[in-house]
Design a protein around this nucleic acid. Structure first.
Length: 423
RNA sequence: GGGGGAGUGUCCCGAGCGGCAAAGGGGGCGGACUGUAAAUCCGCUGGCUAUGCCUUCGUAGGUUCGAGUCCUACCUCCCCCA
C-alpha cells in the first residue's frame, strides 16, 4: 500500500513525518538508487534545542538508519541574521559569542541520535556530518555575493511568500537584514551541494518557502536537481504548541532539563497524541506501535510510560530513562518519595534555625516565582510539605520536618516535586 | 521632506470621560472530577519586611491636589503624499 519504493521515504511516510515533498517520485527514485546526503538546519537561538526540534533530529536519525548520510547544519552564520519566517517581530540580535556558545551546547545532543563515524568530521559516506554555515557565510564578500547570488532572486516573488506575508499584513516592520535570511538559507543549500553533494533539505513545514528558494537557486547556479521535504507543524491534539509545559520549555540538554522532568513531559501526553508520538519519537517497530495504539482506557497509561521511557532512553540513555520511570512510579503510584526527585540543598544550620514556608518555596526551590505567588498557591491549596497541604503561610520548616530519609518533600500541585536536603 | 495614525499589566491580544493596580479575552498556574489524559466547573494570574508601602501603560520632561488619560520634546513602527 505504500507508494514509496525507498526505505527512507516509506519509513517517514508510515510514521507521519511527511507534510510536503517537492518531487515525490524523483526523490523516491534517488533514494532507491544511491546513498543520499540530506540536511536540516538548526538555528542557535538558545543553548539547547527543545522538544519541538526533536522531530527534525528523528528524521536525520531515520535517514542514517536507512543507509543514507545526515548532515546537521548549525546556523552560525544565519543565526546572525535571524529567520523572520512566520514570526511577528524581529528577534533580538545575538552576538557571535552567544551563537558560538549555543552551538557548542546544542551539538552535544546530536551524538545520541546520529553516528558521526570516526572523527568530529567523519567523512566516510556513512558518518553523519556536523557543519556550521559560518564556514562560508562569514567570509562572503557583499558585492560579489550580490552579483553571483542576489541577481537570481526576485523581490516580487520573495514578497509573495506566506512566511513574510504575515509580517507585512500585520504592518510590522521587516528589516532588510531579516529579509536576506531566505537568500542565505538558499545559498546554504547550494553551497552544501557543492561541498558535500547534499541533494535534499528537510525541515518543519514553516521552512517550505525557504527550502524551495534554495532549489530554485540551485537550478540557476547549475546544481543537480535538489529536493525539499517538510514535516508537519507540531501541535498537541488540543492545539498547544509542542515543547512547552510545566513551567518552561522542554529542553533536550540534560543540564537544562533533567531526565526525570523530560520523562514526565512525555508521560503527560494527551491520549489522542499517543499513537502519533510513538511513531514520531520512538524507534519501536510499527507492528508494536499498532498493538500499543489499540489499547485504551486505563491501559493507555501503561503505553504512555513506554512512550516516555523510549523517548527518554534515546536522549539520555536507557539507564537514566528507567531511573526516571522508577522515580515516577514511587512518587505517583506509591505516594512515597524517591531520592531521585529534583533536589535542592540547604545548609543544615539554616534548617535548624527554621525557614518560613514562603521562603522555601519561592527562594530556595523556585517552585513558585515569588512570595506572593506562594501565598496565592497556599490559598488555593496548591502547596504541600511532605504531602500535607500547607494552610498557614507563616508556617516554619525545621529539622523536625525531615522525613526518615533525611529530606523534606515539597510539592506544587500534584506533579511538581522537589526535595530539600540539608547539607 | 510634508501630512495622518499607533505604542497599555515585560507571555499574547485588547478596553480605558483626569481619581487606576487599570475592563475583557487567550495563554499559564492551582483546586474539583478523573487515569499523572481530554472535556467541564471553580479560584488565581505586579512586588514587598503588607489593614500599609513600592513599581507599572514607548522614553524624558511639564501642567495638576492627582496623569495610562492633557501639553512638549524624543524614540520606534505603520499609512498617504513627495
Amino acid at each position: 500500500m505504500s507508494k514509496f519504493r525507498s526505505d527512507f521515504l516509506r519509513t517517514l511516510n508510515e510514521r507521519g513525518f511527511i507534510h510536503q515533498i517537492s518531487d515525490e517520485q524523483g526523490l523516491d527514485e534517488l533514494f532507491a538508487k544511491e546513498t543520499v546526503t540530506a540536511y536540516i538546519g538548526f538555528d542557535p537561538t538558545a543553548p539547547s534545542l527543545h522538544a519541538g526540534g526533536l522531530i527534525q533530529i528523528m528524521m536525520l536519525h531515520w535517514l542514517q538508519a536507512t543507509g543514507h548520510r545526515p548532515v546537521s547544519l548549525m546556523g552560525g552564520g544565519t543565526g546572525m541574521v535571524g529567520d523572520p519566517s512566520f514570526k511577528d517581530e524581529a528577534r533580538q540580535l545575538m552576538t557571535v559569542d552567544t551563537i558560538e556558545a549555543n552551538i557548542a551546547s546544542i551539538k552535544r545532543v546530536f551524538s545520541n541520535y546520529l553516528n558521526y563515524g570516526d572523527g568530529n568530521h567523519g567523512d566516510s559516506l556513512r558518518g553523519a556530518l556536523m557543519i556550521n554555515n559560518a564556514e562560508w557565510l562569514r567570509e562572503l564578500n557583499y558585492l560579489e555575493f550580490l552579483r553571483d547570488v542576489g541577481r537570481h532572486f526576485s523581490v516580487n516573488r520573495m514578497l509573495s511568500f506566506d512566511s513574510v506575508k504575515m509580517r507585512l499584513e500585520r504592518e510590522q516592520s521587516l528589516s532588510f537584514l531579516e529579509f536576506n535570511y531566505m537568500i542565505l538559507q538558499a545559498y546554504d543549500f547550494v553551497e552544501l551541494n557543492k561541498r558535500y553533494g547534499v541533494r535534499l533539505q528537510m525541515g518543519g513545514s514553516d521552512q517550505w518557502g525557504n527550502i524551495v528558494n534554495g532549489i530554485d537557486l540551485g537550478h540557476r547556479m547549475g546544481t543537480p536537481q535538489l529536493y525539499a521535504l517538510t514535516s508537519p507543524l507540531l501541535t498537541t491534539a488540543s492545539g498547544a504548541k509542542m515543547g512547552k509545559t510545566l513551567g518552561g520549555a522542554v529542553w533536550l540538554n540534560a543540564d537544562m532539563l533533567g531526565p526525570y522532568e523530560f520523562w514526565q513531559y512525555w508521560r503527560n501526553t494527551e491520549d489522542a497524541d499517543v499513537p502519533r508520538f510513538l511513531k514520531l519519537y520512538t524507534t519501536l517497530p510499527m507492528a508494536e506501535i499498532a498493538r500499543l495504539s489499540s489499547l485504551g482506557g486505563a491501559e493507555i497509561n501503561e503505553v504512555k510510560k513506554i512512550l516516555a521511557t523510549e523517548v527518554t532512553a534515546m536522549l539520555h540513555g536507557r539507564a537514566a530513562a528507567e531511573a526516571a520511570a522508577e522515580t515516577a512510579r514511587k512518587t505517583f503510584e506509591e505516594g512515597g518519595l524517591s531520592a531521585d526527585l529534583p533536589t535542592v540543598e540547604v545548609p543544615a544550620g539554616e534548617l535548624e534555625a527554621g525557614i518560613g514556608v514562603l521562603a522555601v518555596f519561592a527562594e530556595k526551590t523556585g517552585l513558585v516565582a515569588s512570595n506572593g505567588e506562594a501565598r496565592r498557591q497556599i490559598k488555593g491549596g496548591g502547596l504541600k510539605v511532605n504531602d500535607a497541604t500547607v494552610t498557614d503561610e507563616k508556617a516554619v520548616l525545621t529539622a523536625r520536618d525531615l522525613t526518615p530519609e533525611g529530606v523534606v518533600k515539597l510539592s506544587l500541585g500534584k506533579k511538581k516535586h522537589v526535595l530539600l536536603r540539608p547539607v
